[in-house]
Amino acid sequence: LAHGAGGRATHTLIEAVFLESFRNPMLETLEDGAVADGLAFTTDAFVVTPLFFPGGDIGDLAVNGTVNDLAMCGARPRYLSAGFILEEGFPVADLRRVTASMAEAARRAGVWIVTGDTKVVERGKADGCYITTSGVGTLDRPVRLSAASARPGDAVIVSGPIGEHGITVMLARGELDIEADLCSDTAPLNALVDVLLDACGGGEGGDGGAVRCLRDATRGGVATIVNEIAEASRVAVVLDEDAVPVRPAVRGACELLGIDPLYVACEGRMVAVVAGDSAEAALAALRSHPLGSDAAIIGRINDDPPGLVLLRTSFGGTRIVDLLVGDPLPRIC
């Protein structure tokens, strides 16, 4: 199995195994969460090395990840469950640190962790601590957000500088011996989503709002998210390289590592597709919130070529930003 990077291989795995086995209309949408009967439901498993890194740890990732998946459905996150798989010998002090940050993250997001489970496996059978969270949210607004709703003329907005989480974790592994002034961007996005939907309304639901689609740019980064949108909506996403916000420390580390920041994971950034004529209003709303102060319009939706993401480079060229099959590998001969 080489299906970890969140790219095409993960998709293939999901479609070939899980969708095949569990097929039903709700799963088939492959959205971040399922929506029915006024409720949104989602689940996520968390594995990260190292467990503690500047700006966060596996605990707040586990809470924020599920909170954000619910928020991306337009739901108000309410209740979470938490499952722990612990390796024998995992220090109790570390577990306390993890649960403390989960509690803090839950408080910040306004959700309760209401149920849970713990298993301890033999030494060597797990890497310290794995966490699974599931969450329920209520659909208090008449919105319908979907990766399949993007239309030509829409704007693509990112809520802040990208790539900080992924690069922070990579550097925190300590093998690279690089000092960088960086923290993970892990954060709950539900309040930011509220601000945006209050200003613009969402989807084709009751209020005819302007927000078509929200996605948190986790594994595979912004590049993967916009590819999913391009594919699901059968539209082209055209990004403007110079408009994508990237902090200098992230840019520097990406340059050193030869990694394109568009593919680096975030844990507190979302991509919003918004009707073109509401783009400025959406941007202003996002910027009014601390988590969206550096939001930027990074591109637009075109009708042609459907299913592809193009990047207009600083030199005026048009590069294809493809869904990666696995880890990035050089392609130049």
Binding site: R173, L176, D177, I178, L257, G258, L329
Partner: peptide, 17 residues
């Protein structure tokens, strides 16, 4: 200093096939 950083990247094998 870029030299040592690049050697460290190579040694760690990060994005270094």
């Amino acid at each position: 200093h870029r030299w040592d950083e690049v050697v460290a990247v190579a040694r760690a094998g990060t994005n270094s096939p």
